[in-house]
Design a protein around this nucleic acid. Structure first.
Length: 151
DNA sequence: GCCAACGTTGGC
DNA sequence: GCCAACGTTGGC
């Protein structure tokens, strides 16, 4: 079992939005590293820290899980989508996605608070210049965060 | 809105 | 394969 942190702009999809649905297809990822994580490493049941980014209060907003293996992101074929990719074909899809299922909303564990916890200093999302929308989370980081949230 | 940091593109 | 130019991310 692996753990992940996945960023979402709450203006687009917030933890409340995801909670209101059984599962959501994580379309629109257009970064190879992030795609490779979904395609090669994600398994059904993997834990997900749902992170709100590009907003007034960035931070972890909920807990989710991976609910499907990867499959082609249909928006790459849709000319009307902002995620359309003219170089992608149905025979050779370039972008993949998984489904995500929200488990619960948490209190907002802010970026500032994450930075204040020494055990979490290794988190990829906290590294300088980190922009990846999907990053692996070490099991000790996952457990530390759950312990903080359950306190 | 600013801007540092990063990823991608494309000419050579 | 190099690398400058460009576009994007995302905190502040």
């Amino acid at each position: 079992m692996n753990y992940w942190l996945m960023k979402s702009e709450p203006d687009e999809i917030s933890i409340d939005d995801v909670l209101s649905m059984k599962s959501v297809p994580w379309f629109g990822v257009r970064n190879y590293q992030a795609r490779n994580f979904m395609r090669d490493a994600m398994r059904v049941g993997d834990g997900v820290l749902f992170y709100h980014s590009s907003c007034a209060q960035p931070g972890i907003a909920g807990i989710a899980e991976v609910s499907s293996t990867s499959y082609p992101d249909h928006t790459q074929f849709d000319q009307d989508s902002k995620y359309f990719d003219p170089k992608a074909t149905r025979e050779n899809p370039r972008w993949m996605m998984v489904d995500i299922k929200a488990l619960r909303k948490t209190r907002l564990l802010s970026l500032a608070e994450l930075r204040s916890v020494p055990e979490l200093a290794s988190m990829l999302v906290l590294q300088k210049g980190s922009r990846l929308s999907i990053t692996p989370v070490a099991s000790h980081e996952w457990e530390t965060i759950l312990a903080i949230l359950d306190k």
